[in-house]
Computed example of a mutant assay.
Amino acid sequence: MLCKVQKIIDRSDTNAPAPTPLSVNFREYDGGAAIAQAALASEIALAITYNGLSQAVMMVSPGNLEDFIRGFSVSNDIVQDQSEIYDIHLTHFDQAVQADVQICSRAFWALKDHRRQMTGTSGCGLCGVEALEQALPQLQILDPVRLPAAEHLIGIRDRIEQAQQMARSSGALHAALYFDTQGEALICREDIGRHNALDKLIGALQHVGINSRRGFTVVTSRCSLELIHKAVRARLGTLVSLSAPTALTVQWAIKHRLNLIHVPHRNAPRIYSPA
């Protein structure tokens, strides 16, 4: 795909926030309505290779891409921590970005071995087992940490809205935020994808060396099992969701000692883990 689009810039040191939302013309469903403009969220295709090996192509919001790649690499168990990422080189096209990531030999050989196992079992009736192992992986059990103070969750939705700068102008964006031990929002990452937003936040936290075992992380999206996987792999201490978790999500949070809190629209926050 990338060879069919125009290359516009090549650089390796960009981690800029997302550009200003695009203004798009529209007209209300009325024959006499005038043409107006709306600011809409941007998205691009991002292709990621590790040591020259193609791994994934996904649609993302075009901002904080290095944060996303770092978080994606950790939360998808490609590297164990940021020290195993040696370099990230981004090549920009008009509607796409190619990310060439250099990782350590241990991580690369583990990635190649996993891909080889997937290829070897795809024709022998075991591919379903491989898929289940990915959906229900073996994860480390975290050391328990204190729950955040109850007052830090008061008015959390209003504070999140203030931190979501891109969503205020365009909408259609999920967010993941880190709040410190004083209840202050330090980092906010936004993306069209809920997984992407959390990956961007994880990458930002690890890149600047913030201890995410303290404070708490908030996701504005549905709290699915995949988000629990990412939180545990990134060794977050507390995950707060604005949408109710599933029963399986709660079970996994309890099992892996990840604090899990749901903040409903009109009711008091609910602690699901620890039980």
Results as ranks from 00 to 15, higher is better:
residue 2 L to G: 06
residue 3 C to N: 15
residue 4 K to Y: 14
residue 8 I to P: 06
residue 11 R to Y: 13
residue 14 T to H: 11
residue 15 N to W: 01
residue 17 P to Y: 04
residue 21 P to G: 02
residue 22 L to A: 15
residue 23 S to G: 10
residue 24 V to E: 03
residue 27 R to E: 06
residue 27 R to P: 01
residue 29 Y to M: 14
residue 30 D to Y: 10
residue 31 G to W: 10
residue 31 G to K: 12
residue 39 A to G: 06
residue 40 L to Y: 08
residue 43 E to Q: 14
residue 47 A to V: 10
residue 53 L to T: 08
residue 55 Q to R: 12
residue 58 M to S: 09
residue 59 M to Y: 11
residue 61 S to R: 03
residue 62 P to H: 02
residue 63 G to R: 03
residue 66 E to T: 09
residue 72 F to A: 08
residue 73 S to G: 04
residue 76 N to I: 04
residue 76 N to S: 10
residue 78 I to F: 08
residue 80 Q to A: 13
residue 82 Q to F: 15
residue 91 T to G: 08
residue 91 T to R: 06
residue 96 A to E: 04
residue 98 Q to H: 11
residue 108 F to V: 05
residue 113 D to I: 02
residue 117 Q to K: 12
residue 118 M to D: 10
residue 131 A to I: 13
residue 134 Q to V: 11
residue 144 P to T: 13
residue 150 A to R: 15
residue 156 I to M: 07
residue 156 I to T: 09
residue 159 R to Q: 12
residue 161 E to W: 07
residue 161 E to L: 10
residue 164 Q to P: 10
residue 167 A to H: 13
residue 171 G to I: 04
residue 176 A to T: 00
residue 179 F to Y: 07
residue 185 A to D: 03
residue 185 A to L: 05
residue 187 I to S: 00
residue 188 C to M: 05
residue 189 R to E: 03
residue 193 G to K: 01
residue 193 G to M: 01
residue 193 G to T: 03
residue 197 A to I: 00
residue 197 A to E: 00
residue 198 L to N: 00
residue 199 D to P: 02
residue 200 K to H: 00
residue 202 I to K: 01
residue 202 I to F: 00
residue 209 G to I: 00
residue 210 I to N: 01
residue 210 I to T: 00
residue 213 R to V: 04
residue 215 G to A: 04
residue 215 G to Q: 04
residue 218 V to I: 01
residue 219 V to H: 00
residue 224 S to L: 10
residue 225 L to Q: 06
residue 225 L to Y: 08
residue 226 E to N: 14
residue 227 L to A: 05
residue 230 K to M: 14
residue 230 K to A: 14
residue 234 A to L: 07
residue 235 R to A: 10
residue 237 G to M: 02
residue 238 T to C: 07
residue 241 S to G: 08
residue 243 S to T: 09
residue 248 L to M: 11
residue 254 I to N: 13
residue 258 L to C: 07
residue 259 N to D: 07
residue 259 N to R: 05
residue 260 L to E: 06
residue 263 V to F: 06
residue 264 P to G: 07
residue 264 P to L: 08
residue 265 H to D: 15
residue 266 R to E: 15
residue 267 N to D: 15
residue 269 P to Y: 13
residue 270 R to F: 12
